[in-house]
Design a protein around this nucleic acid. Structure first.
Length: 330
DNA sequence: GGGAAGCACCGCCAAA
DNA sequence: CATTTGGCGGTGCTTC
């Protein structure tokens, strides 16, 4: 049915150029996701995108996984409609050559949109493109990004963030979500949805969702269960007994537990516990707030309950995680 | 740290 | 007739 909805040929426009910028040590997956999504867009809408992989020097560029990719020299690229800066292994990103940054600064003004995948945000930050803008990156590195770009507003719990012409995405797979959003912006929701289906991605894991929630990644097939998960996630600090979750999904309690188990593989109460643990985890690792405070902020009645839940879900206590993190930092 | 109370889970059945 | 739905209540886990 998607095909029949496709617009007539008189609507034809010239290709939009998308330049994907890489450098030695870039992350292959960060690059592959957007390419795959753009390519699927081209299958659906002929010549929608003209995709080029570029680097400062051109030629073969080795990824962090060792596999090299053929690139064009960026100085031959006058400007692109969309520029996407690919993420890479952190040591490589931290040690970025100044030419790369100035290349980004040279290209960006001519681009309609500039985006980053994962740690690519560091390069946008270094180029000054994130100043006074909302941004995101892989949550593990959000503090470091904020330090690098103090004038940016780094949001740690986003899959992707758009602020004007600047788009940032979180971890590698979020790069696909980002690209789908770019495509949706250009070609409309119908096409983006069809591409998402082709990639076996869920259309609209919209920006606000937690990027590190394994549970939400499950994307249960039924809309109601999905809604319940989002409701739970957004109200973690509240009491969330089964009957309330069922109400949020407009289902009877019995039917709700049944469907929930079928679609997520776990029972509702377990899922809420898991969501709470997932929400607490990054805060525990931050070492700043006391465990008691964190526990209450995600809906555990006290630190002891949180400890029990951590043991059940992860097999270790919050304090153990904290100690491990301290040792690593030292 | 033990025992009662409360809640979640799930099998079973009847109704839609 | 098959499948989906929702109520009931026993069992066991969690909480207090």
């Amino acid at each position: 049915m998607i095909v029949s909805e496709m617009t007539n040929i008189s609507n034809f426009q010239t290709s939009r150029s998308a330049a994907l910028l890489v450098y030695p040590g870039f992350d292959l997956l960060d690059l592959a996701g957007p390419i795959a999504a753009f390519n699927d867009a081209n299958v659906l809408v002929a010549k929608a995108y003209d995709v080029t992989v570029i680097s400062c020097a051109g030629g073969l560029v080795e990824s962090s996984a060792g596999v090299a990719v053929a690139t064009s020299p960026s100085n031959r690229q006058a400007s692109a409609d969309t520029l996407i800066v690919i993420g890479g292994a952190m040591p490589a990103v931290r040690a970025t050559a100044p030419e790369l940054i100035s290349e980004i600064q040279r290209l960006a003004p001519g681009c309609r949109r500039v985006a980053s995948v994962c740690s690519g945000a560091f390069l946008l930050g270094a180029a000054g493109l994130l100043d006074n803008r909302r941004a995101t990156t892989h949550w593990k590195f959000s503090a470091e990004l904020q330090a690098l770009a103090p004038a940016a507003r780094v949001e740690a719990d986003r899959l992707f963030v758009q602020d004007g012409p600047i788009w940032c995405s979180a971890g590698a797979t979020a790069g696909i979500d980002l690209t789908l959003a770019l495509i949706e912006d250009d070609l409309g929701a119908e096409h983006a949805k069809a591409i998402a289906r082709g990639l076996v991605m869920s259309h609209r894991r919209v920006g606000g969702q937690s990027q590190y929630s394994a549970l939400l990644e499950l994307e249960p097939p039924s809309d109601r269960i999905r809604r319940v998960l989002l409701y739970a996630r957004d109200n973690l600090a509240e009491f969330l007994p089964v009957h309330r979750l069922a109400a949020a999904g407009a289902l009877s309690e019995r039917q709700f537990t049944r469907m929930f188990l079928r679609e997520t593989g776990m029972t509702p109460a377990k899922a809420v516990e898991k969501l709470r643990v997932e929400a607490a985890q990054p805060q525990v690792e931050m070492l700043a707030a006391p465990l008691e405070t964190i526990a209450r902020s995600v809906g555990f009645s006290d630190a002891e309950h949180m400890r029990q839940a951590f043991l059940r879900c992860n097999g270790y206590a919050p304090a153990a995680l904290r100690n491990a993190r301290r040792v690593r930092n030292a």
